[in-house]
Design a protein around this nucleic acid. Sequence first.
DNA 1: TTATAAATGGACCGATCGGTAAACTATATC
DNA 2: GATATAGTTTACCGATCGGTCCATTTATAA
Lengths: 199, 199
Amino acid sequence: MSYTDQYIKEAEVRPSKRDELVRKALEIFYREGFHATGMDLLAAETGISKTTMFKHFSSKEELILAVLRLRDQEFRNCLFRRMEQAGRPRAQLLAMFDALSEWFGRPEFRSCMFIKAASEYPDPRHPIHAQSAEHKRLLFLQLQKIAADAGARDPDALARALLLLKEGAIVTAHLGHEADPAGDAKAAASIVLAAALDS
Amino acid sequence: MSYTDQYIKEAEVRPSKRDELVRKALEIFYREGFHATGMDLLAAETGISKTTMFKHFSSKEELILAVLRLRDQEFRNCLFRRMEQAGRPRAQLLAMFDALSEWFGRPEFRSCMFIKAASEYPDPRHPIHAQSAEHKRLLFLQLQKIAADAGARDPDALARALLLLKEGAIVTAHLGHEADPAGDAKAAASIVLAAALDS
DNA sequence: TTATAAATGGACCGATCGGTAAACTATATC
DNA sequence: GATATAGTTTACCGATCGGTCCATTTATAA
């Protein structure tokens, strides 16, 4: 049973404090940072008692893992649904950058939760780091499929290049002085895409 | 007096425990994380007493700022020196990705310290976050100049695109399953560069 | 050798950390 | 109403947190 199946199994349980906790914790961890958010602060901000937290999760890190699973699901669902709206595969690939642009424009935008998780848990063997890497791998698989559908001669390479631009745009949007990282990324993606689809 | 001038002024003071501390702290913060490294642990790992640390820096965050300044200097110096070795401006731009590839292959590689700092101090107004952003801005300025020297029609846009690929490659190298993020980025950069230099 | 500056060790501070346990409250079901 | 379950409050735990202070030791310069 992969971790995705595990998440589906958990979702069969009816809405509960557990779900509420994960949802709220996601927002706070994203805004403040994982280590920088203590469990007392989390209890105060979520309105959920520490006892309840530790009833549902055996440790803070287990809670973080649940948060990452939720974020992975919602992010990939939203992103690929938004891309699908663009119609044909080629347009979908470029629409990823429109989706990024919309995300960057939100007041709560603060980079990518998985980049944050990997930064705060830098050991690749740590479960939190590993789960962040898994999110990126799933992203790649989905994008590779669309690149193949778009008729790329080398869907792997194209997907990889587009993801580089995606990650670069996220970091730059969080850290740079650039006016339109998503637009810059889209422009570069257009060039790379044209080269990848030329016969 | 900009922060760069401030750093130069500090460097006029002769080698000291202070410099040793900053150098060693850089390694430990980079490996373990900022919040995850307490001052007791830092003292134990650096062999420098907490009293001495607090004699030279009024707070942990001031130490972190000094660490970031050092890292900024050494990173940009090394990167641009490495690029210069490639000769002509166009080759220099592509050599950035060779430099990245060499960096990624080092056992101590764990992403970019400034991405880490921004992740752990996500508020753009925080001095640590602001200094990380400044590092990226200085990088951009230097790259823009080389792009202009290479004859790009729009040096700004080219520099921005190349930096997107650079940041994407760093994140991917730290988080992805890809075999050669720097190589992928270089391939994409070649395509973008060709388009940018075409008359 | 002596004087001075720098650094250390050790103890301390109030606060927070992740986590535990018992008594109590709220809610749903029979 | 009785019972079971979920959740809360409150206090607690040992440990660590960033930071302070003083007596002592070490390093450096003359």
